[in-house]
Write a protein that binds this DNA or RNA. Sequence first.
DNA 1: GCTGGAGTTAACGGCATGTGAAGCGTGGTT
DNA 2: AACCACGCTTCACATGCCGTTAACTCCAGC
Lengths: 225, 225
Amino acid sequence: MGKQRILLVDDEPDILEFIEYNLVKEGYDVHTAGNGRVGVEMAKKLLPDLVLLDVMMPEMDGMEACAEIREHGPLAQTVVAFLTARGEDYSQIAGFEAGADDYILKPIKPKVLVSRVQALLRRKKNSGYVGGSYDGTGLMIDPERYVVMHQGQELNLPKKEFELLSLLASQPGKVFSREKILASVWGTDVVVGDRTIDVHIRKLREKLGDEYFKTVKGVGYKFVG
Amino acid sequence: MGKQRILLVDDEPDILEFIEYNLVKEGYDVHTAGNGRVGVEMAKKLLPDLVLLDVMMPEMDGMEACAEIREHGPLAQTVVAFLTARGEDYSQIAGFEAGADDYILKPIKPKVLVSRVQALLRRKKNSGYVGGSYDGTGLMIDPERYVVMHQGQELNLPKKEFELLSLLASQPGKVFSREKILASVWGTDVVVGDRTIDVHIRKLREKLGDEYFKTVKGVGYKFVG
DNA sequence: GCTGGAGTTAACGGCATGTGAAGCGTGGTT
DNA sequence: AACCACGCTTCACATGCCGTTAACTCCAGC
């Protein structure tokens, strides 16, 4: 499962750096933009989980940026929060009306901000998107619903196949040795024959396509997105 | 779509009335409780969309109440926000760690509160069947009246069946393990045989139709809309 | 061409779940 | 008090999926 992506948009470099530092420290994948125009463009490409927006910025202010993000379909699941010194009632209300999910007042206290960010992201499905985005290509593994989305199709995999796929796809590109796979999916105490893994890999290849699973002879298997 | 339900928990009647007035005016179905203990009990019965919690209360404080709400399966989709005069950093952080979705500082300004409440509930709109719509098709569960509407028919389910259905339907698509089901519906201390859950699932399938309940072998059951 | 690791296929059998019926306690009714 | 209806649980048996195995084929490197 990859890091959650946060896009931070503010025109003051000091603030950007300060907040970025604190969020990166918490394990988030943080990207930054210096004004609303650039922020919106980045958001469309990046499809972040959360966008933190300053209100007053050159080029395009936070309100406009928020509205534009809200109108962009692929960003429907993205959480948007303002981060500003403007605490007036009408400004807050305008923020929420623009479609924001939260309105955080400066000055920023790192720990409080982090708590709030975690709360905002907690509810968002931390789904295992693998290899690309929501545009139809690629693969999405949903451990909660126990289904795999593949080319718009919902696939129901048997338990072992699902767990094997989850394991391999958790770190695309990484080669998992047969021992590691056995230990993770079957458990350390269970003993099964050599061919068992092959058979399950084969079933996954049948259902999802050859291209996802690469054999590394003498080593193991890896998932490629 | 019925009104969204809000549960308001505070020990000061004046505040209760003030906030209730403003939320009712916006069209919400507002219920109130005077302390944490009562609040949690009401929440379990009412399955509200949002719980607004004061932190400092007699009997059981907001933090405890929040934690208990978070541990109650059927309330997993419920949004919890604190509403308090305690603005210290550590208090806010503790609130978020207890599982809250927002931490709103008193004094309350009606319009700002309403904006924030709308933002919190906006994201939740299309979730779940609990308190869903009477559109003829599908299913609606009314935890207050303890009644299930199904294809225009009013169904009276026995307690266990109703609770099982409520749990599964509270998060459509999500797979609930037998363990989780037992813990939520039967309680952690009760021991019942493996087949008991199956039998109840079967009864639900008989009454509502096979298509709603999907078995995930080796994992559990899920409700599908 | 030999060898070892991986791919393929089908068949077997276990085990999780489905099913019907019977037992048991409870609460209401006559 | 006896009876009954209902809800919950258990038991015994049926079923069918899914994981595993085994036997065979394929392929690459030496």
